[in-house]
Design a protein around this nucleic acid. Structure first.
Lengths: 113, 113
DNA sequence: TGCATATTCAACCAAATGGTTGACCGTTCG
DNA sequence: CGAACGGTCAACCATTTGGTTGAATATGCA
């Protein structure tokens, strides 16, 4: 059926990969730099990055001899929508929306409904 | 690190298990009834249900010789929060929040920030 | 040119996953 | 009681997953 969701959820099921995503949240990174904090071979990290890329959660672009990894947060949308179909997540959306609101207010932006 | 998230995402990564969750969205079901539409042994489905239970996404309660399976949608909260930390899901949150707001307004409740 | 750096490839391994089958156990019912 | 039903257990199997190591490739730099 929905192999795309398979890949996204499977990619997120590994703690190393979730940590990598958190790192990429800060900034784009080269493969070697992603691997640095882990007690694991560069090859292993390279494989994790491939899994994330095949799930569409990150993209990789080679510039010179360096391959840059970039978060593609939009890819999580389908999975997020799927999860929200199970309802009873309104409270969370509220929290998330409130923090979003606060950010916007700090930017002195008018928010209207 | 966060083994709970590991289990939730891994549980969601299988299409059979996601289909089961969709079925349970309708109503609580006995193990045999869950298994009925699948071209797969009862044992296999039983195992899938154990995976879902160990992830906390469903609960199982035995009454007589029948084991009833029940959705526990709150369990998806952690995973949903984690995913939302990747931002750029505001559009979705906004939609969800708006429908939440509409519900609240229909209840004639004052919503303030 | 020649060396260092960045990354992947290939082969291998152990453990986990998703499935099967047949025997088993507890419960209900004629 | 004894048979049928609901479900699990145990053993097994093939495939996938997450990791290793050593060699290979490609780029940058002195």
């Amino acid at each position: 059926m929905d192999k795309h969701l398979d890949k996204i959820f499977a990619a997120l099921a590994d703690p190393t990969r979730r940590t990598i995503l958190n790192m990429l949240l800060e900034d784009d990174m080269a493969v070697t730099d992603v691997a640095e904090p882990f007690e694991m071979s560069l090859t292993a990290i390279s494989k994790h990055l491939i899994v994330l890329m095949q799930a569409g959660i990150i993209s990789q672009e080679k510039r010179g001899r360096v391959k840059w990894c970039k978060l593609e947060p939009d890819a999580l949308r389908d999975a997020s929508i799927w999860m929200q179909s199970f309802g009873q997540l309104e409270a969370i959306n509220l929290e998330a929306f409130e923090s979003f609101l606060h950010q916007e207010l700090e930017k002195d932006t008018t928010v209207t409904f």
